[in-house]
């Protein structure tokens, strides 16, 4: 852990400690993961940044709430919400039936879709996949799509991490991978992704991303109202354009 990281945690801890003593109209504590660029990440100065963070700040402005942002590890993010460490999670969380059993979700604030990624020089065509080797991360929506929709036609390879799938795409073992579109877009812009590109159109799989709050919390209605406002007045589009040249709503 370097100094910047330490400073970041100090800042976060200080902010959390200070929160109970600052009285304003409404106090809302919001958790995000801080490890899912470009949606939420910690930058060099130790500050939380990203699409989720900007959306959170815009929502707070509309709700006229005094917001505190905290970074929380993904594994403990739902338990922490239930233990009242914070009041909402804005961390690119997919709305799933399993999660809906334990938390309430706001209206979706963006949609995730799938897409094929292959080397630029390859003539891979998503329309003609028969007999190809196609990879995805295990136990993800992309992995399920691959098995359900293409399992009979292609050789399916499932990886423990997305990075391992990218490694095998680079090594030439895979003809293409199926991935969440938005993180893949980010990867294509990185140094490692220069030789690769999207192939074909994005695949809509009805994966909606929402804000999680405790069951029955009225914060949900407030969030939904604020979300409608930022969508209507162009705030959302401005944030969207900062990260992606296409609409992700």
């Amino acid at each position: 852990m370097n100094l910047k990281h330490t400073l970041a945690s100090v800042a976060i801890v200080a902010a959390t400690l200070a929160a109970p003593f600052t009285y304003a109209a409404d106090k809302v504590r919001i958790a995000t993961e801080g490890a899912y660029a470009p949606f939420n990440f910690i930058d060099e100065s130790g500050e939380l940044k990203g699409f989720d963070v900007d959306i959170a700040k815009a929502l707070c402005e509309k709700m006229e709430a005094d917001c505190t942002l905290v970074a929380q590890d993904w594994d403990g993010i739902i338990p922490g919400l239930m233990a009242r460490k914070y009041d909402a999670i804005i961390a690119s969380m997919s709305i799933t039936p399993e999660r809906s059993r334990v938390v309430d979700f706001s209206d979706p604030y963006y949609s995730n879709s799938l897409i094929f990624v292959a080397p630029k020089k390859s003539k891979f065509n998503p329309e003609k996949v028969s007999g190809k080797s196609i990879g995805a991360q295990r136990a993800t929506i992309a992995g399920q799509y691959l098995e359900d929709k293409l399992g009979s036609k292609v050789s399916v390879k499932l990886y423990d991490t997305q990075d391992n799938a990218y490694l095998d795409l680079a090594s030439g073992r895979l003809d293409a991978i199926v991935s969440d579109q938005l993180p893949a877009y980010d990867w294509l812009r990185s140094d490692a992704g220069q030789a690769f590109e999207f192939k074909g159109e994005k695949i809509d799989i009805d994966d909606k991303i929402g804000i999680a709050v405790r069951k029955g919390d009225k914060l949900r209605q407030k969030m939904n109202k604020a979300l409608k406002e930022i969508l209507a007045d162009g705030t959302y589009d401005r944030i969207n354009a900062k990260y992606f040249p296409f609409s992700i709503y």
Partner: peptide, 10 residues
């Protein structure tokens, strides 16, 4: 094991 993991993912 791989087969078991794949089945469970679904």
């Amino acid at each position: 094991t791989g087969m078991a993991r794949t089945i469970i993912a679904r």
